[in-house]
Design a protein around this nucleic acid. Structure first.
Length: 172
DNA sequence: CGAACGGCCAAAC
DNA sequence: GTTTGGCCGTTCG
């Protein structure tokens, strides 16, 4: 995470008995979020975004999510198209890197993976709902443990963390 | 400019 | 089960 400038809010949350931080970038609207295990950035704190950070913490811990203002900034056309396709995957379902690539008419699932890694708004654009085509977990920028945790709670993974085949969503 | 690198995948042993 | 060759947007030199 190279750029620290412009950080406006953060909120601690607990996952797996370890303290994590949810960090929010943005001015009027949130333009970027990061989930962090390590220390807080030493930048100014904007209390107006604490509400947003708190909502995301609630979502992480209880699954409650309300409408929030957000916007995409500094995102390439390709990344936007990936995110737009991703947004169709409903709660409780998963899709694959290859399925997104096919929906976009390209033949490079890996390019899709690269774009998801750059997702500026994790959770809002649910990149945790993308797994490999053989129902393996795939990766996650904030750590695969958190990815599994989210998918189990959404019902797309069984309690043992394996992806449920019948939760593959194909209609993109 | 070029080269290398992925959160991958389908086909083939 | 494992290996292989291709994929393509981005990043870095």
């Amino acid at each position: 995470m190279a750029r620290e400038a412009g950080v406006h809010g953060w909120c601690p949350y607990t996952f797996d008995r370890t303290k994590h931080y949810l960090i929010v970038w943005g001015d009027e609207c949130v333009s970027r979020i990061a989930l962090r295990e390590d220390s807080l950035p030493q930048t100014g704190h904007d209390p107006s975004l604490d509400t947003y950070a708190f909502m995301l913490k609630e979502w992480l811990t209880t699954g409650e999510m309300h409408e929030v203002p957000f916007m995409l900034k500094d995102v390439s056309a390709f990344d936007r198209s990936v995110l737009a396709t991703l947004a169709k995957v409903p709660h409780g379902y998963v899709t694959s890197y290859g399925a997104i690539a096919r929906a976009l008419g390209i033949r490079s699932p890996r390019a899709v993976g690269q774009a998801l890694k750059r997702n500026p708004l994790p959770l809002i654009y649910p990149c945790h709902r993308v797994v490999s085509s053989d129902c393996g977990l795939g990766g996650f920028s904030a750590g695969t443990d958190l990815k599994t945790h989210l998918l189990v709670r959404e019902g797309a993974c069984a309690d043992d963390g394996t992806v449920r085949r019948d939760r593959m969503f194909h209609d993109l």
